[in-house]
Simulated assay, not measured.
Amino acid sequence: MRRTVLGGCGAWPGAGQACSGYFVEHDGFRLLLDPGYATLPRLLALTAAERVDAVLVSHGHPDHCADLNPLLRARALGDAPPTPLPVHALPGALDAVLALDGRMLAGSYEVRDFDAGTAFAIGPFTVDTKLLPHFVPNAGIRLMADGEVFACTGDTGPSPDIVALARDADVFLAEATFPEQVLPEQDAPFLSTARQAGAYAAEAEVGRLVLAHLWPGVEPAAAEQSARATCTGRIDVATPGLTATLS
């Protein structure tokens, strides 16, 4: 299983950056996870739009799904439109982004709703999900293939289910919007810090922690330093082009 970071910014993309987006490949299958703002140009540097086999979205905030629209445009308006793209998401999560072009994109995608807490298959992947706390319904995602595990929180506040989601994962991609303290404080039930992500990674005994969804302006080094206060394992920050082959 190979995972490539397309972007790691939270809320909006900083200059030269992109929001959440991850490209996961296994046995020739190409899965796009959370196509947030500005991720499509980075995806197109890796593969053609029509070669994406499926999309999986953790929740409906646009920094996790907005570039589904230009991806579908690139597929539907190309010289040889491919078969409809399977798009897996929580019920209603993609209503707004799919409404942008109405009938023009009709037939270019097939929405496959899932409920957080269920398991299902996408190509060679077994997908297990957990409902994690956020401002809108959010599914933590655990991808498994050939004994390898990639876990991703989406965006989440504190929850004991995060450890279960990440348990023994080869790579754990964790939301870490702020280094030490969520601001404003009333948002603390719905977002996480790098320090918290490190603690979850240590308890879950993951192989590699990748900090994602950093607030624009947060220095990656500051996030990494905060995570190292609670985790002694390998830590990276989700920056465009970062890759991980899970083995």
Rank of each mutant, 00 (worst) to 15 (best):
I122C: 05
A197C: 05
T230Q: 15
P62Q: 09
D236T: 11
D128K: 11
L105V: 06
L211N: 04
F23I: 01
Q225F: 08
P158N: 08
A244P: 00
A139G: 03
G36A: 08
D95Y: 05
L72G: 02
N138M: 11
D27W: 07
D168A: 07
L6T: 01
S108N: 10
T177Y: 04
L209W: 09
R195C: 02
F125D: 03
V111F: 04
D34H: 14
L165G: 08
S226H: 09
Y200A: 02
W12L: 11
A11Y: 14
A139W: 06
E25Q: 15
G123C: 12
T177I: 07
K130P: 00
T153A: 12
W215T: 12
V149C: 15
G36P: 14
L165H: 10
A238V: 11
S247I: 07
Q225V: 10
L143D: 02
R30A: 12
G102F: 01
D53I: 12
A18F: 10
R228A: 09
G140M: 01
T156H: 13
P81Y: 08
G157W: 10
V97C: 00
L131V: 07
V5K: 00
V87R: 00
F172H: 06
A38T: 01
D128H: 14
I235L: 07
A169D: 01
G198T: 09
G102T: 02
G21Y: 11
L33N: 05
E180N: 08
A99D: 12
R42W: 13
D34K: 01
T126R: 15
T193C: 03
H213T: 12
H64E: 07
W12H: 07
Q17K: 13
A54G: 10
L33V: 15
A227N: 03
L191W: 12
L191R: 07
S58W: 05
Q225G: 04
L173Q: 11
G7W: 02
A106I: 00
I235V: 15
L46V: 10
P133H: 01
